[in-house]
Design a binder for these strands. Structure first.
Lengths: 233, 233
DNA sequence: AAAATTATTATGTATGCACATAAAAGCATC
DNA sequence: GATGCTTTTATGTGCATACATAATAATTTT
């Protein structure tokens, strides 16, 4: 039984995964330290470190200085969702993309909006309602508020050809944001726009982005009934 | 103007982020190569590499050998969702968790299930329906099928005290899986279990895990109306 | 016995160097 | 001018070494 020698970090990672899967190292178990593994695998500690770090990032391992590395007791399923442009999303499905701006106005937002965006109640924001279509059928309804104090150049945009979804991505930097997924019943308005029954269960994505302490934009995307957001684990 | 000297990868990362945000490097732009940046930042190329690699992982940069590194033209919003145990999820909200098994049976699944799980149509699977409660109010309805060929030990489990959600996590290794989020209208059955109106918009998570080529389990989680899944960008 | 201090240890990371590898660019050949 | 080969180059990775840092364990002090 000689050392098989794992000469790159990917193979080390694979071997560690194998051992966890084979229950040689069980959830909650402390695994040997990097130096020992390096010795066993016949590689440098750096290489082991790289492999274990990647596994920790993936949620498979829990690592803490001095305490050592252990197999995650609760392997948190980390689903990484790729939120692409709606245009891209539709085209990748092999469908034809089109876009319709419904309304564009500068108006005082309801309190619910100015509250979460932390803008003054009396402050007018740019409000755009638009529809994204796949093969000429309604796909997603975009309802967006833009803080023109932060994005002054948006004032000059009509958003009649280019969706705010796309325009903002390339024109507006942001530092951080929040995203929330939920289900909601279609109001009469929303049903009319999406051409579905009132009260249908719609998949909703609410996203808000910030540039430092100032809110950039808040958007609600409502997808036609049956929409799924999927990814691999 | 002397070199400020960035001596660790985090600060290099920050500086790169800053330059992208300040539009010094615009989306689509090619940025200087690692060696040049290392020189400019007064650190080793390894350090720059680490920083740029992390940014590429985050979707901020696109890197290709020989072609160089460029600012992502379409900064794909990568939302990483932490799908924890429902018990953990509820407890973290400061609520009281309880669990009720509704039914447990070994039965032939509908074709829709055996199809996606790629089990023989005539093959009986373990079917569990259970309810997760927060402060004694229905929180999520779990409807699960378990492939007992792959998880024989599940045959001995009653799942009357411990939810399959929790039991499987610690007892069953899997190699990969899929997860999908959607919105669905509550059927009469589901409405009764979740104590909500029939036709309510429910947030649904469908998850299926595999051990190599064999399906381990398929679960549908239906959350009470109003449920949100949120994360930061 | 409790609290504060010190030692130990496993992970975290920076560095210089070497070589691997993918892909673009240049060059030669037909 | 299209095709295939060669060179160049930027990223990708491995390794030895050194030191940093956080957290535990051991020890001393109160």
């Amino acid at each position: 039984m000689s050392a098989p020698s794992f000469r790159n970090w990917q193979s080390v990672q694979e071997e560690v995964r194998r051992r966890i899967h084979a229950r040689i190292w069980k959830p909650g178990d402390l695994i040997p330290n990097e130096a020992d593994l390096a010795l066993e695998f016949g590689c440098a500690r750096t290489t082991v470190n790289r492999a274990l770090r990647a596994l920790a990032d993936a949620g498979v391992l829990d690592r803490r200085r001095k305490a050592g590395t252990r197999v995650a007791a609760q392997p948190v399923a980390k689903a990484t969702l790729q939120i692409a442009l709606i245009k891209t999303e539709i085209r990748e499905r092999g469908q034809d993309y089109s876009y319709q701006r419904l309304t564009r106005s500068k108006s005082i937002p309801p309190a619910a909006i100015s509250d979460v965006m932390q803008t003054a109640q009396s402050r007018a924001l740019l409000h755009i309602r638009a529809l994204h279509l796949a093969d000429d059928k309604p796909y997603a309804f975009e309802d967006r508020w833009i803080n023109t104090d932060v994005v002054p150049s948006a004032r000059a945009e009509a958003f009649d050809m280019l969706s705010p979804n796309e325009w903002l991505l390339t024109h507006t930097p942001y530092t951080h944001g929040e995203i929330a997924f939920s289900a909601t019943e279609a109001t009469a308005d929303e049903a009319a726009v999406l051409k579905c029954a009132e009260g249908s269960a719609l998949f909703a994505i609410d996203r808000m982005t910030w540039d430092g302490a100032r809110s950039v934009t808040k958007v609600r995307l409502l997808f036609r009934p049956g929409h799924q957001l999927r990814t691999n684990l």
